[in-house]
């Protein structure tokens, strides 16, 4: 094992701390994992929208974003896809997902199929429920736009790494008079979509879906771990700054 730099030591320390904080919170809050946590309103709105879609006999379209850059971030949206699919299995129009990458498209197929299997209705599953929209960022946008404009939609959710060009999809949904909810990991897209009527989540709230929908206790434990790390980082930064200022840490 080569000698570690300060950067590597800090990175390693953060990983260990995150792991410990996650495990600790899973254990401590196992009875009421979701209590005492702020819920992201944009994520909760996806539930509301799915209910509205069921009542209207229309469908929800979910744009899962691109997996070109970092597929792990793109995977944050899949619990929401599973939860909303579960709700829509016996409705007139099941949820439709559109992906901007091969891995994400296959994952979404697997998640949707798994949800139908879990509900003991595999025969109701159709591959069309989770399709690829396009393989490059603009091909994805071009594939997403017709789906977002569909008359069968009760609303559109863009959840995943969406580039700022997705302002076109939001505009199109607005023109059709439908609500749109956006949760994107791309900070430029968050900034651009601030000037739209989309219900929007900012910053790291992107990772809140599992906890806000109360579908995964580990997601709630992760939020608590994030809070703990936030405090540790703050204390560490202040301590480091003081030590640097005093010349103790050269």
């Amino acid at each position: 094992m080569p000698a570690l730099s300060l950067n590597d030591l800090l990175a390693f320390g953060l990983c260990v701390l995150a792991l410990v904080a996650l495990g600790m919170n899973l254990l401590v809050h196992r009875k009421h994992p979701y209590s005492g946590l702020r819920h992201t309103s944009a994520v909760r709105s996806t539930e509301i929208l799915s209910q509205a879609a069921a009542e209207q006999g229309k469908r929800l379209t979910i744009g899962l974003g691109l997996d070109v850059a970092d597929s792990t971030t793109a995977m944050a949206s899949l619990p929401v896809l599973a939860a909303l699919t579960r709700r829509s299995i016996f409705t007139d129009q099941p949820v439709r997902a559109a992906s901007g990458g091969g891995t994400l498209a296959c994952l979404s197929q697997s998640v949707v199929r798994g949800t139908y299997q879990g509900a003991v209705t595999p025969e109701l599953f159709k591959p069309d429920y989770a399709l690829l929209a396009g393989l490059s960022p603009y091909a994805y946008l071009a594939g997403l736009l017709p789906q977002a404009a569909s008359r069968a939609n009760a609303g559109v959710i863009l959840y995943g790494p969406h580039r700022p060009e997705s302002v076109l999809a939001v505009d199109l949904v607005e023109r059709k008079g439908n609500p749109v909810i956006v949760l994107t990991s791309d900070l430029s897209a968050q900034a651009v979509l601030l000037a739209s009527s989309a219900q929007l989540s900012l910053g790291e709230d992107f990772f809140d879906s599992g906890a806000s929908l109360e579908v995964n206790p580990s997601a709630a434990a992760a939020l608590r771990a994030q809070d703990l790390l936030r405090i540790v980082i703050t204390v560490g930064l202040i301590l480091g700054a003081v030590l640097r200022l005093l010349g103790v840490w050269q």
Binding site: S35, L194, L202
Partner: peptide, 14 residues
Amino acid sequence: VAEVGMQPEVSVPP
């Protein structure tokens, strides 16, 4: 604050 999803909301314990 509520619009963009930063308003603290409360979950009800089961």
